[in-house]
């Protein structure tokens, strides 16, 4: 018998072990749901899978009686647009700031303290200010995500820039490169995959800011919907929505990971 620390599962058993907790969770849930529904068929806390299926059928495949929209898809589109725009702005700003503070001693002296201080402000505390300045529309939600994520990406990119061996910068100079060429040919191409990595890492916070902003002031979106139906205790809508948000987050992460692998074969 090997020591526990040396015992490794085979491929198949590793997969089985990975799936097991999900199966157990499903079983426990459906047992709980059955038990509660047996006592009270109108119980809303633990809806059955059939009830959730009905809810999704209603939300996703039947036009809303009030607006004629397919709410589920409308919510998904609005949320993804906000998240995408926010993350895109944050990534661009973060790259520019991080690259210049990481590579130019003058920019570091000028901006680094500011970025550090801004990154310490809790973004949600700024949300009221954003609502006052930009109104309750799309801009304030996108701005919240951008403001919340930019400092994190900027600091990460600054660190990654500083990690690029100075030998490379010196070498480029001995080959005659000017500052702009060092940026465009040596630093930027090496930072792009690291930027994608840091977008992947900050995406979780991005969802957090998105759902918070939607919960507080919005007329559609995944976050808006689950907070709206909370009033009617519609767990049959909330649970599939949470599952859908999780799936979207997983797919976005997978997409970025594959893009990194595909676009930057030299990056490990």
């Amino acid at each position: 018998m090997k020591r526990l620390i040396n015992a490794a599962p085979s491929r198949v058993s590793a997969m089985a072990l990975g799936i097991l907790p999900f199966v157990l969770l499903l079983i426990i849930y459906s047992m709980g749901s059955d038990a509660r529904l047996e006592v009270n068929p109108n119980d809303k806390l633990l809806p059955s899978f059939a009830q959730m299926g009905d809810a999704i059928q209603r939300m996703a495949f039947e036009p809303s009686k009030r607006t004629g929209e397919y709410l589920f898809w409308q919510d998904t589109l609005s949320s993804l647009t906000r998240l995408g725009m926010g993350m895109l702005i944050a990534a661009s700003l973060g790259l520019v700031i991080g690259l210049s503070t990481g590579a130019l001693p003058l920019a570091r002296a000028g901006f680094s303290p500011l970025v550090t201080v801004i990154s310490l402000v809790p973004p949600l505390a700024l949300l009221p200010i954003l609502f006052i300045v930009f109104g309750l529309g799309e801009v304030s939600k996108v701005a919240l995500i951008a403001i919340g994520i930019t400092p994190a990406i900027a600091r990460e990119i600054q660190r990654r820039t500083e990690e690029i061996p100075s030998e490379q910068i010196v070498k480029a100079q001995t080959l005659g490169a000017n500052t702009a060429q060092i940026f465009s040919r040596v630093l930027l191409p090496q930072l792009l995959p690291r930027l994608i990595d840091s977008v992947r890492l900050t995406m979780g916070s991005g969802w957090l800011f998105l759902i918070s902003a939607e919960a507080i002031a919005s007329t559609d979106g995944l976050g808006y919907r689950i907070f709206l139906v909370r009033r009617y205790m519609s767990m049959d809508v909330i649970l599939p929505y949470v599952f859908w948000i999780t799936l979207l987050a997983f797919l976005l992460d997978l997409l970025l990971r594959l893009a990194n692998k595909r676009l930057f074969p030299w990056y490990q």
């Binding site: 061996p165 030998e167 490379q168 010196v170 070498k171 480029a172 001995t174 080959l175 040919r185 040596v186 191409p189 090496q190 930057f264 030299w266 990056y267």
Partner: peptide, 12 residues
Amino acid sequence: GIVFQQYSVFPH
């Protein structure tokens, strides 16, 4: 021109 012990080439 220079050649260092390592990191002398551009990895990308």
